[in-house]
Design a protein around this nucleic acid. Structure first.
Ligand SMILES: Nc1nc2c(ncn2[C@H]2C[C@H](O)[C@@H](COP(=O)(O)OP(=O)(O)OP(=O)(O)O)O2)c(=O)[nH]1
Ligand SMILES: [Mg+2]
Ligand SMILES: [Mg+2]
Length: 413
DNA sequence: GCCGTTTTCGGCCCGACTGTTTTCAGTCG
């Protein structure tokens, strides 16, 4: 059965082909937006039983609903097959070379017949690229650099990995005098399962100081771009983007840099419809700044309740925020108990009482003590006799507590 | 191709950085 990921990929490819053929316009964005929606779904598109049902999804209209239905029922999409056949195999791979976009790909193919990475590399090495209009020596070098980076290119990394790397970088810049505020943004702040790069935002009145420190970090293998307010580096094979703004714009810049891309587009469009302008520097009514320092003011100035980063995917959250109808997200403090705890009765490091103390400190209301039984050959397992003793200890603990409950259990497997 | 507190047709986010260019196009965030 075809997965959502595969369908999203088909839509992404359609968008790429249309863009290279310059036939896209806003259709390209529509396909990409739909691809992001599909990636974010928790239910398989194969479970949707009608075009009508599919059309209820945000960014999926009549045309795309029919295409999805064709894919899930027949296993393929004729429009996509035809489109794919209309361009040379492998040409889309060129788009994955950083710095090479649809216009360049079209030019390379129409003027040099280049349709794969190897030919592109050859042409660049033979200095054939600089002969093309609008291309020079540096474009050639940039392409070669891009190809080598593409070949090293890492897949998206799990959140857990990127999160700690981002924290490390934030920590190493935080103590600079020039840094007023610094925090990670992008997909890490939105807590996506996988992360493409590390995005870090900084507020400073001396941006060049921050940039210099950033560019002097350990482990940098490449500098992709570097200007007054934005620098992109490769650190440990991962791209790290640093954006620096004035403290007065920190909130709006955080909103911008947190994304997602389509959340930003919809938010900026909403601002326009309200006669305002939104960018990373603030919310503006004519020449007047009406928000910027604090992120929450960006949302409130647009008549929206605050949208938690985890929801900023253009999946209907902006519409919900208009009516103050956002869902309550589960927070750490909503976790009220833990139903699998070991203690020193078997292989745990802490006594039951110690575990209770810590659990209460964490705001829990109950825990279950599930020490091993000897059933699967655990040598320090709690057998029937010991279990009775353990249970009486637990009963005693419970007798002394009125706002907390310890449950007795035995782990058999 | 999507979508509607201006609209069912006509709009569709906005700015930084680079390279090649005498004023801007392309790519990316
Ligand atoms: N307004 C606007 N903001 C954008 C656009 N593209 C990216 N951004 C903002 C929102 C993104 O979350 C943020 C960082 O861009 P990234 O390319 O790193 O994307 P993101 O971190 O969301 O996902 P990733 O895991 O890195 O692929 O920049 C855009 O086209 N328009
Ligand atoms: Mg990112
Ligand atoms: Mg980024």
């Amino acid at each position: 059965m075809i997965t959502n990921k595969e369908i999203a990929r088909i839509f992404d490819e359609i968008a790429d082909i249309l863009e290279v053929k310059d036939e896209g316009g806003f259709k390209v964005r529509a396909y990409k937006r739909a691809a992001r929606t599909i990636e974010g779904l928790t239910e398989s598109l194969s479970n949707f039983s009608s075009v009508k049902e599919l059309k209820n999804l945000p960014s999926i209209g009549d045309a795309l609903a029919k295409k999805i239905y064709e894919i899930t029922t027949t296993g393929k999409l004729n429009y996509y097959e035809d489109l794919k056949a209309s361009v040379p195999e492998g040409i889309l791979e060129l788009l994955y070379v950083p710095g090479v976009g649809p216009k360049t790909v079209a030019k390379l193919y129409s003027e040099r017949g280049i349709a794969d990475i190897e030919s592109l590399e050859m042409a660049a090495k033979n200095h054939e690229i600089q002969e093309l209009s609008g291309m020079g020596k540096k474009s050639e070098e940039k392409i070669l650099k891009g190809i080598s980076q593409y070949r090293k290119h890492k897949e998206r990394v799990p959140l857990g990995e990127a999160y700690f790397k981002a924290q490390e970088i934030v920590k190493s810049l935080k103590n600079l005098k020039a840094v007023e505020e610094i925090q990670f943004a992008g997909s890490i702040r939105r807590m996506k399962e996988t992360i493409g790069d590390i995005d870090i935002l900084c507020a400073s009145k001396q941006p060049s100081e921050v940039m210099s420190a950033f560019k002097a970090l350990d482990g940098i293998s490449e500098m992709i771009a570097s200007g007054d307010t934005k620098t992109s580096l490769i650190i440990d094979n991962m791209q790290v983007d640093l954006r620096v703004v004035e403290p007065d714009s920190f909130g709006s810049a955080l909103q911008y840099f947190t994304g997602s891309q389509f959340h930003n587009i919809k938010l900026r469009d909403l601002a326009l419809k309200k006669g305002l302008k939104l960018n990373e520097y603030g919310v503006f009514e004519g020449d007047r700044t009406i928000a910027g320092k604090r992120e929450k003011d960006v949302y409130s100035s647009l008549g929206l309740s605050f949208i938690p980063p985890e929801l900023r995917e253009d999946q209907g959250e902006i519409e919900a925020a208009t009516e103050d109808a956002l869902p309550d997200l589960i927070e750490i403090q909503d976790i009220k108990g833990d139903l699998h705890i070991h203690s020193t009765w078997s292989d745990g490091r802490n006594s039951i009482e110690e575990m209770v103390d810590k659990a209460r400190l964490m705001g829990y209301e109950y825990i279950a003590i599930c020490d091993h039984s000897p059933a699967i050959g655990i040598t320090r397992g709690v057998d029937e006799e010991k279990l009775l003793c353990e249970m009486s200890e637990i009963k005693q603990i419970n007798d002394n507590l009125d706002d907390f409950r310890v449950l007795s259990a035995s782990r058999l497997i």
